[in-house]
Simulated assay, not measured.
Amino acid sequence: MQPGGGSAARSQVLRLPGRHGYAVEFSPYLAGRVACATSQHYGIAGCGTLAVLEQNETGIGLLRSFDWSDGLFDVTWSENNEHVLVTSSGDGSLQIWDTAKPTGPLQVYKEHTQEAYSVHWSQTRGEQLVVSGSWDQTAKLWDPAVGKSLCTFKGHEGVIYSTIWSPHIPGCFASASGDQTLRVWDVKTPGVKVVIPAHQAEILSCDWCKYDENLLVTGAVDCSLKGWDLRNVRHPVFNLFGHTYAVRRVKFSPFHSTLLASCSYDFTVRFWDFSKPNPLLEIVEHHTEFTCGLDLSLHNRGQVADCAWDETVKIYSPLCLTVPV
Rank of each mutant, 00 (worst) to 15 (best):
Q2R: 15
R10N: 14
R15C: 09
L16C: 07
H20I: 05
Y22E: 13
V24G: 05
A31Y: 07
V34F: 01
A35P: 12
A35Q: 12
A37F: 01
A37L: 02
H41V: 15
Y42R: 12
I44W: 08
V52K: 01
G59L: 08
I60S: 02
I60R: 01
G61V: 12
R64I: 01
S65A: 09
F66D: 01
S69G: 09
D70F: 14
G71N: 08
D74I: 12
V75I: 09
T76E: 08
H83S: 13
V84F: 08
V86R: 12
V86P: 10
T87E: 08
S88L: 09
K101A: 11
P102I: 02
G104K: 06
L106E: 07
V108E: 15
Y109W: 09
Y109C: 00
T113M: 15
Q114H: 10
Y117D: 08
W121V: 09
S122T: 15
Q123I: 10
Q123N: 11
Q128R: 07
S132A: 00
S134I: 09
K140C: 12
D143L: 11
P144D: 13
G147S: 12
S149H: 11
L150T: 14
T152D: 00
K154L: 15
G155H: 04
E157M: 15
S162V: 02
P167W: 09
I169F: 01
C172V: 14
A174L: 01
A176H: 05
G178C: 02
G178Q: 04
V184Q: 13
K188W: 01
K188P: 01
T189V: 14
V194Q: 11
P197K: 05
A198K: 00
A198G: 00
H199P: 00
A201T: 03
I203F: 12
S205P: 03
C206S: 04
D207C: 12
C209V: 04
K210P: 05
L216N: 10
T218E: 08
V221D: 14
D222R: 07
C223L: 08
S224F: 01
G227D: 04
G227S: 06
W228Q: 05
L230W: 06
R231S: 12
R234D: 10
G242H: 06
T244G: 04
T244F: 03
T244L: 11
V250E: 13
P254D: 12
P254N: 12
H256R: 13
H256C: 09
S257T: 06
L259A: 12
A261P: 07
S262P: 06
F267M: 10
V269Y: 03
F274E: 01
N278T: 14
P279L: 13
I283P: 05
E285I: 05
T288E: 14
T291I: 01
D295I: 03
L296D: 05
S297A: 15
L298H: 02
H299W: 06
N300Q: 11
G302S: 11
Q303A: 07
A305H: 08
D306Q: 11
C307T: 05
A308M: 13
D310K: 04
T312G: 02
K314W: 14
P318M: 11
L319M: 10
L321K: 02
T322P: 04
T322F: 02
P324N: 04
